[in-house]
Design a binder for these strands. Structure first.
Lengths: 225, 225
DNA sequence: CAACTATTCAATAAATAAGTTGAATAGCTT
DNA sequence: AAGCTATTCAACTTATTTATTGAATAGTTG
């Protein structure tokens, strides 16, 4: 095999990873699986796809070795093969967010719809705030995701229960909300509601997977295994 | 715009980055541009594509904002928009190399063809060896790439000149060769030739861009600007 | 073992992507 | 201004991808 043939083949093999990620539905699936295993039906529900279509996209991800399966009764649970899958996508995401003006505009305009101020804290700043015991940290993801793993010292109030449980929160402290990641917007929703009720609240700019990647402390970290 | 519509749009925009990388020729182009700007003709020559085809792939990369152009007389020089483009691809590459058995086999088999032993040193180990002044460091890329930027203390002997200049090299010290990156194979060629002539030689496992990413010292670092 | 649920497969049509070919364009040189 | 070089564009053909629909399959339950 000459060098030209070798290069053509090896780049073709590696292009398969990029091809697997070259579809918006599959990217959303990766973001969802970064929070823990899901069944086909759940993924179809979350993403608005038919079950058959979701299954096809999952086959594509599986063929590229980006996801793997385990069975649980009638359900097949899909999970990311490793967190490197998420981080490879996160690298693409940050690149896209850096240069894609349309994506930047979409996010800015959608965020304006929440009428919350745009402040967000990053993981490093959040870690400092937790250490100084300055804040209340809220995980507004579904409770099943919280139980799988969450930021050390976070309390769980899923977004749909926030209005009902808002009285539990002290007004003295700043509240930081976080969710699945930058396109989830549960944290934005939470901050908008909290500010409306007079709380001093901001959101974390990314999500739980990024916190884990920084090596910051978590509880019950079984996110991806 | 509801949340579903927002997600569909934002993931579609970001999928454009992955789509731009979802082709073997475009991945090879990114690897080549990571060594510095190139014209369309040069890229066509290096990759075995027609000029028209190379130009089309470059348009795709440009539309995704992954490359940019500058003019030089009749030539249009393409360069990566930033080194984040290379690192996003490198993340995909490492993911693919981790799980794609066919790619692993291709590399292993091709490397065996060089009849060199398989030892390679990583950037950290290389940095230690340089510091201890234990080695001769050889940059076997084309000299124009060396001049744009190279590992601190490396000497340049392009691979096609190595046989002619091999007498310049002392046999007392170990020689480490590096090139553009893992799929370039100039370093493997160099090590095979050096070992055949009785030198103690190994290669660096990645390439110059990875060395830069680690923050290790370079000379003339104008690789990507 | 029949019925059920969850999931995958196969076929199809439509949309998108890739490479070639020849024409057109942009900028430079004489 | 003509001729040249490098590059891009447009049209066409072929290949690949995506979503839908209905059938098939795998595993569980009663």
């Amino acid at each position: 095999m000459n060098k030209r043939e070798f290069k053509d083949k090896v780049y073709s093999e590696l292009a398969k990873v990029a091809k697997a990620m070259a579809n918006p539905h599959r990217l959303e699936i990766i973001d969802l699986l970064a929070q823990g295993p899901c069944s086909v039906e759940q993924l179809a529900n979350y993403t608005g796809m038919s079950v058959a279509n979701a299954s096809q996209h999952l086959q594509t991800l599986k063929n590229a070795k980006l996801v793997q399966i385990s069975r649980s009764g009638n359900f097949i649970n899909y999970s990311l093969t490793s967190e490197d899958v998420f981080f490879a996508w996160a690298g693409l995401r940050e690149l896209g967010l850096e240069y894609n003006a349309e994506a930047q505009k979409l996010i800015r305009d959608f965020r304006k719809g929440y009428k919350s101020n745009m402040n967000a804290v990053d993981a490093d700043e959040l870690a400092r705030m937790i250490e100084k015991d300055e804040i209340i940290l809220l995980d507004v993801r579904p409770e099943v995701e919280y139980k799988r793993g969450h930021i050390h010292s976070a309390m769980s109030i899923p977004i749909e229960k926030l209005e009902a449980h808002i009285k539990k929160l002290p007004k003295r402290k700043m509240i930081v909300a976080y969710c699945r990641g930058p396109f989830c917007f549960f944290a934005d929703e939470a901050v908008a509601l909290l500010q409306k009720k007079g709380f001093n609240a901001v959101r974390m700019d990314k999500g739980f997977p990024e916190w884990v990647d920084k090596g910051y402390p978590v509880e019950n970290a079984q996110t991806i295994n």
